[in-house]
Write a protein that binds this DNA or RNA. Structure first.
Lengths: 328, 328
DNA sequence: AATCATCGTGCACGAATGTGCAACGCCGCT
DNA sequence: AGCGGCGTTGCACATTCGTGCACGATGATT
């Protein structure tokens, strides 16, 4: 009843360009109610708005990223003065919309967990599909990390939006002993998840930065101890993708901890058709660069500031693009 | 430049839920300009808004039509007091949106010409495709009919919206002599069009009503003379689809003029996957009923009043649903 | 039966948006 | 150079929209 009114109101508003006043009279309710009906139609994912980017031109930033790394780049504009959380929120909204466009019935969506993906999940509108699956890409056990919802809640929220079956991955982010991992990987409960991971059509993940400034919660929430972090620094690790660590050049071999990590390696990730990476924050610049060089990304969603920073890294001094190239 | 700003503005507005004021500051222009940028983004078809109808419920009218005739029905709500031209305008907006959804690259769209289709063409936003074709379904020569744009302009406008190749059908709506038609049908220029018509994926047409009240321009614009119209009445014709005449029960055999008409017969139409019929006006009720019974429609787009009227025809007295069933 | 919680509604006001108008800049022409 | 048309911009005002609040209906609980 109410849902049906919402549909009628939304149709008249968005498709027939009627004012809410006219709609109110047609439906025999007050104008306020129409406003609320239309809002509910939006919130329930009944209204889908998508934008076709102008064909010829494009943001310089986006094109340069696309050309340099052979990916599709979606560079989101955000008010200059915005805080980083605000920027993340904005980018997450756009990302949520794009994911909804790309993911539909009978597909498998693989998701990593982290602040970025959590932000996206908050902005997903319901867009039910049939026969689709959402599968967790890397373990997290039940540890609660500051400000981040449980990984299981995250998966559940995403699966709910798409009306998908969900596959949790009930293992810790990192094993303490490689042996345990090897044994667990033989368990059928784990095999079931791994098998589903191999069938992923769209992967969604962020990157974690090892940089001290704004450490990703992987590094700050007790998943790794000091000795392990020191070992990462020794290995010239700049960050991680799905809890697999990468160096600035995109390599990831011979990093001890990776043998105990639970996420798919870049090698495994690359077998997935569409790999959507969402990143906000200059602090993640080097990590993102590593991910791009590891070719784990097919679609990058970020904001202008981060995009500019990463492109700057390519020409400036490795440590700081701002300080790059002082003289001729 | 401007197109790119429009895209940025539209993204921030529709996807990131920013106010125009914030967008204005981000882009460094005035708020009014942002309003205009967003409007231009909409007008240029850069913004696509689609609605997912509520799954379970549905307008009674739409469901009854769907159930009765085995079609998909899209019943548009319009303010009660609206004039018929206004109702047509509203329905045409919705129809334009749906056609844009259904028609895309590498498809062939067949269109009839008439006031209804003309109204739809006015509301089509540009949504470029590649390799698509728009082909005229029935002849019209160059006659100019009151208030109706040339059929060729109509086709051109539709083809422009989709960036399609267009195939005109340069023959009169009706031949005077069946013989001429037979000979013309052998011409390669005509064959080329007929061949393309056979490849149509989506057909778009209205219905013409023979009813005296608001005669479709096929009947009032000199295409047919008085004797011919009298003969149609004798044959119990109620209207036409693509200039092929139908009786109330959907039959169309042994109607002399059909042998001289240039549009596809219902039989030929039915080979097309998606056949979109757009109808507004009670006067067209009987004609629409005939079309539905002839099974030439897979998707009907109409307004509530017309829908109610047609459903009324099924139970009321054939001539007038309002006067049906006076006693118990 | 009385009470309370919850939800939906309309009202009214402030916020956001659309648009006529005048000023400005940019070309092309005389 | 001067001039006039054309398109774009910002301003100011009118319209349209969003939302806190209070009211009334409904239904569950005591």
């Amino acid at each position: 009843m109410r849902e049906d009114d919402a549909f009628r109101a939304a149709t008249m508003y968005y498709l027939q360009d009627q004012t809410m006043d006219v709609i109110a009279r047609t439906l025999g309710v007050s104008r306020s109610t129409v406003s609320r009906l239309i809002k509910s139609a939006r919130d329930d994912g009944m209204v889908r708005i998508s934008l076709r980017p102008p064909s010829s031109t494009g943001s310089q930033l986006g094109h340069r990223l696309a050309a340099t790394f052979g990916i599709k780049a979606h560079v989101v504009s955000v008010r200059e003065s915005a805080s980083e959380v605000h920027r993340l929120e904005q980018v997450a909204m756009v990302a949520a919309g794009l994911i909804s466009e790309w993911f539909s019935s009978d597909m498998v969506l693989g998701v990593a967990w982290g602040t970025t993906v959590a932000a996206i999940s908050r902005h997903l509108k319901s867009s039910p599909s049939r026969g689709s699956v959402v599968v967790q890409l890397n373990g997290a056990a039940n540890t609660y990390a500051s400000g981040v919802t449980y990984a299981s809640d995250l998966i559940a929220a995403i699966a709910a939006a798409f009306d998908s079956t969900m596959y949790h991955f009930p293992v810790p982010a990192f094993f303490d002993y490689p042996e345990t991992k090897r044994l667990m990987w033989r368990e059928r409960s784990v095999q079931r998840v791994l098998e589903m991971q191999r069938r992923v059509d769209v992967a969604l993940f962020g990157v974690g930065a090892l940089s001290a400034e704004v450490p990703s919660h992987v590094y700050s929430s007790g998943y790794l101890d000091d000795a392990e972090i020191a070992s990462l620094v020794d290995d010239r690790v700049v960050g991680d993708v799905c809890t697999v660590f990468l160096r600035g050049d995109g390599s990831f071999r011979d990093i001890e901890i990776n043998a105990r990590a639970t996420g798919p390696t870049p090698r495994e990730l690359r077998t997935i058709k569409r790999r959507v990476c969402v990143v906000v924050g200059e602090a993640k610049g080097h990590a993102l660069l590593g991910a791009l060089r590891a070719r784990v990304v097919t679609d990058l969603i970020t904001d202008e500031t981060t995009a500019r920073y990463v492109l700057g890294l390519l020409r400036g001094a490795p440590g700081s693009p701002a300080g790059g190239r002082l003289g001729p």
